[in-house]
Design a protein around this nucleic acid. Structure first.
Length: 491
RNA sequence: GGUCGGUUGGCCGAGUGGCUAGGCAGCGGUCUGCAAAACCGCGUACGGCGGUUCGAAUCCGCCAUCGACCUCCA
């Protein structure tokens, strides 16, 4: 099988993936700041790196996947009276900060579950790692690359850039940064506008603060990821992922902090998913044009023509390559919904397929192509295209227009089970008779349809059509088959 | 202003220096009492202008246009 290749933002090239410890992979992904409902934007990194997590495991790696929850230390802006996002929201809603954190963490988890995103191996929260972050800050001070002023500690970017390469990940030059950085605040206590806070002294009204050698305060955002990633994955570790919008300054800062604290770069492969746009523009909290996942699932947003299922959104996202921008539209979502339905339906059909003596279809080649697509930097659109080629094959066999032998059928079943369910993480969402009520309903519909068969046998088309049309009006979908009928509820 | 990345058919979205992407929608056919589903077949394409090349939508240049980052953001 071909090598697994991933695009490394650091080199801006596709590279063969080779873990530091053979057979083991450590990956860290920037999770959400829990100060608001999870929105469509959050789903892309979650799904992208869930896919990576699933695929690495499928390839036989033992994976430790760490995805954090930022519940503190994320400044609203970098100006002096840095206010914590969580704390600000708490004031607005008159809740304890940790209450806010709990509410939105729960919301995030609920949405991730619906999207069939697996839980990471470890999900550390920033507020639970204050001690580690203080130690990280101390290391930076000891190295001489961070300085304390008025109880706050800043990373000295200028000093760092003189010795190391600051901007190598984002492709920025320190001179450009100087000329382009806006003057945020005349009273800024930082030595340079480029410096970033690694520890902030808390203002008296600040709700969340902890003791430290420098002040009663809270850690900076960039420090959190450095402290937690290396605590659980060591350094260097294999893969660090996140949204493209975190490239600068967040991930750039993580590299600088790592170099200063450990004497070498902290990460081998940096991976970034592109953003979801809405009418061509980035979907973001600051722009106020985001659609929450709950709104998607319920269809309660003015831009939505209807509700879309979580797996439909997963399919929609995976039908584009993770490094390409993806524009939201009802039309595209509708197309995704139909395509997904066809894929799932055919995959289910696979179980009923009857093998023949010989195969007229090339299953081995299909399998090869599927792996080649995934190995080429997680090219899910191409993978899905191949799976649809397979859908035609499966349907043709089912129609008796093609044949498959039992060995190939087993390979095909495993292939679809592996890729559709285990790796891509899709699942069937059709209604099934779970509750007693549904069972009763199901029996009644069967009864009506059996009456319709009788009518059909008597060539009583008027009655036959009346039953079918009435059921259709009530929201059922009726299909005639060789054996009789199939029915389901229209979505 | 600086840096980076897009511009593909009705919609979405891959890929490639010459060989069908795929999905959705549309059209024709098979099947069906009629449908639906499925299958078969069909069409419309690579922002503009130059250049390199036997050949470019794919490489290079210029232009137009959109976006991202440069400040919190997935």
């Amino acid at each position: 099988m071909s090598d697994f290749i991933i695009y490394n933002t650091l080199s801006r090239k596709k590279e063969i993936f080779e873990p530091i410890n053979p057979g083991h992979v450590g990956m860290y992904v920037c999770g959400p700041t829990v100060y608001g409902e999870a929105h469509l934007g959050h789903s892309r990194p979650a799904i992208t790196f869930d896919l990576l997590f699933r695929y690495l495991k499928h390839l036989g790696y033992k994976v430790r996947y760490v995805r954090n929850i930022t519940d503190v230390g994320h400044l609203v802006n970098d100006a002096d009276e840095g206010e914590d996002k969580i704390a600000r929201k708490a004031k607005v809603e008159e809740l304890e900060p940790m209450e806010i954190v709990q509410i939105y963490t729960n919301s995030y988890h609920r949405n991730m579950l619906l999207l069939n995103v697996l839980s990471p191996s470890i999900e550390p929260v920033a507020s639970g790692h204050i001690i580690e972050q203080i130690a990280t800050v101390q290391k930076m001070i000891d190295s001489g690359f961070a300085y304390e002023i008025n109880g706050s500690v800043y990373f000295d970017v200028e000093k760092y850039a003189a010795v190391h390469s600051y901007g190598k990940l984002s492709g920025r030059k320190i001179e450009d940064l100087y000329t382009n950085t806006r003057d945020l605040d005349a009273q800024n206590e930082k030595k340079s506008g480029l410096d970033f806070a690694v520890w902030k002294k808390a203002a008296p009204e600040h709700l969340m603060h902890w003791p430290s050698p420098w002040s009663e305060g809270f850690p900076g955002w960039h420090t959190e990821c450095t402290a937690m990633s290396t605590k659980y994955l060591g350094e260097p570790f294999d893969i660090h992922g996140g949204g493209l919008d975190l490239l600068f300054p967040h991930h750039e800062a993580e590299i600088a902090q790592g170099v200063v604290c450990f004497g070498h770069e902290p990460v081998r492969y940096w991976m970034h998913n592109n953003l979801i746009t809405i009418n061509g523009q980035k979907m973001g909290k600051s722009l106020g044009n985001f659609i929450t996942l709950d709104e998607f699932f319920s269809g309660t947003h003015p831009l939505l023509e209807k509700a879309y299922s979580p797996i439909c959104i997963r399919f929609f996202i995976l039908q584009a390559h993770y490094r390409s921008p993806l524009d939201f539209s009802n039309e595209a979502l509708l197309a995704a919904e139909k395509g997904l339905e066809r894929l799932i339906k055919t995959t289910t059909l696979l179980e009923e397929l009857q093998p023949s003596e010989q195969s007229s279809i090339d299953v081995a080649a299909l399998k090869e192509k599927c792996y080649a697509a995934m190995n080429d930097d997680l090219n899910t659109p191409v993978l899905i295209a191949h799976l649809f080629d397979g859908v035609k094959m499966i349907n043709s066999v089912n129609d008796g227009k093609a044949s498959i032998n039992s060995a190939d059928l087993e390979i095909l079943k495993k292939l679809y089970n592996d890729f559709v369910f285990d790796i891509l993480g899709f699942k069937s969402e059709t209604l099934s008779g779970e509750s007693a009520n549904e069972e009763v309903l199901s029996n009644v519909v069967d009864l009506l349809l059996n009456l319709r068969i009788e009518a059909k046998n008597n060539k009583d088309w008027a009655t036959s059509d009346k039953i079918r049309n009435s059921l259709t009006e009530l929201g059922f979908e009726i299909k005639d088959t060789k054996e009789g009928f199939e029915w389901g509820l229209k979505k």
